[in-house]
Design a protein around this nucleic acid. Sequence first.
RNA 1: GCGGGUGUAGCUCAGUGGUAGAGCACCACGUUGCCAACGUGGACGUCGUGGGUUCGAGCCCCAUCACCCGCUCCA
Length: 489
Amino acid sequence: MDSKTERMEKIVSLCKRRGFIFQSSEIYGGLNGFWDYGPLGVELKRNVKDAWWKDMVTNHDEFGTPPGAPQGFGMVGLDCSIIMHPQVWKCSGHYDLFCDFMVDCRECQARFRADHVPSSECPLKPSKHPGEHDKCKLTEPREFNLMFKTIVGAMGSAEDAAFLRPETAQGIFVNFKNVCDTTRVRIPFGICQVGKSFRNEITPRNFTFRSREFEQMELEFFCHPNSSMQWYQYWRDRRLKWYTTLGLAGERLQLREHAQEELSHYSCGTSDIEYAFPFLGAGEFGELEGVAHRGDFDLRSHSEGKLNEKTRPLQVELGPDGKPKWAGSGKDLSYFDDQTRERYIPHVIEPSAGADRGTLAFICEAFHEDNQPDEKGEMQSRIVMKFHPRLAPIKVAVFPLVKKDGMPEFALDLYRNLKAAGIATYYDQQAAIGKRYRRQDEIGTPFCVTVDGQSIQDQTVTIRDRDTLEQRRIPADKVLEEVAARLRA
RNA sequence: GCGGGUGUAGCUCAGUGGUAGAGCACCACGUUGCCAACGUGGACGUCGUGGGUUCGAGCCCCAUCACCCGCUCCA
């Protein structure tokens, strides 16, 4: 049995059937690498992003020191434009890396960077370079557009080309000075941003995991160079714990510290938080979030001009004319600490998470098939999405046991009260009660409240737990309190 | 980008050149009354898309798109 494929197919099918995730432009045949979130999916993904934002920004206490942190720190948010000045991408390094000219060999089906052909080996004849072997059939160098290009202005031409951002991070770096000048933040502090990014991935694959349009949740944390390693370790551990807290199991989640040779030349450390997605082979993990120590590469590049990653210490990359290959803004992006009278360029720790990948991981982790007894006591299979209550698209479903004797009216009242309190609530009076429970199990609703004949007499209802199937009878006016408490837990 | 597979109802799939099907799901009514009940009725199809062959195509041929698997790629 190919359980790996089967399991993923069941998950994809459920996502479609229940309105979590649809193919983009499906009625036109779909579009490779793009996906839409349906009515339940949008709630789920929103809950993931909200959990991130609240845990990082809204609920952050800048006057306390979180467990494991070297000291207290500030956290603020930002939402910047998707299209930015083209020079941003030249200084960030994306332009050079994302716009390479590539050469394909039709014979050996290999691809080479055009500028690396003289130093590459032909796979068929390793003693020769690509193109030198009799059988080589190289294509003309073709531009490899890893960034989406667009034209700014209705009458714009190629000279007005701009790019859709391939990451949200650069918007934070170029606003570093603005934030420092306007918010009274002091180092150490972080700037958070959630937003769409775009990359022309070579091969979109594995459902939403590798998409061309995706959403990131990024923090750029600015700190003193001397304490940067401590902060790197703090964020690495804290970010891992965030996923655990929201329900990703220990063995399918891992932190993988990059080996020295994997690191960018300027980085003192990078870790990936990875999840064992069902579509991957045994022992394989896919990246959810990268936590990188970026040193002062970004702020210096945007100030002095794009730095050459291969130099140590980092130096501005020069063009043939001896001037910076890509000029920086020329703005001073250093930080002045008026307590210590020290001026320095902060180092940056970057936890960069994929919102769609996280959402997909929570979906995969939540997916369970188990057996539960039906009314005759015979075991029946059921699909249940065991979302953490904080992430579940619907928190409570309210049912009248039967649609008569005042039960629907009682149940609707309760439904409206819960909605008014901001709880995502669903009302259902159709079909047998057992079927309604199963419908909610399949979309991961953690609590079902049922109004029965006794409710009309004594104002109590039963509240059922999705995972244990346990039911307790509580006063109807305690439902809100009960649910709210379990959402916090 | 390369090779293989798949594409028929919301979902899972049957249908091998001659009237478009099943199960589940969905809707209505009745019945039941706490874990996928039953009865009756109902709605739901560009057979992925476009061409071609044929008297006739869901089925054969070509192209194309999407998804899955394996390579490649993933700064």
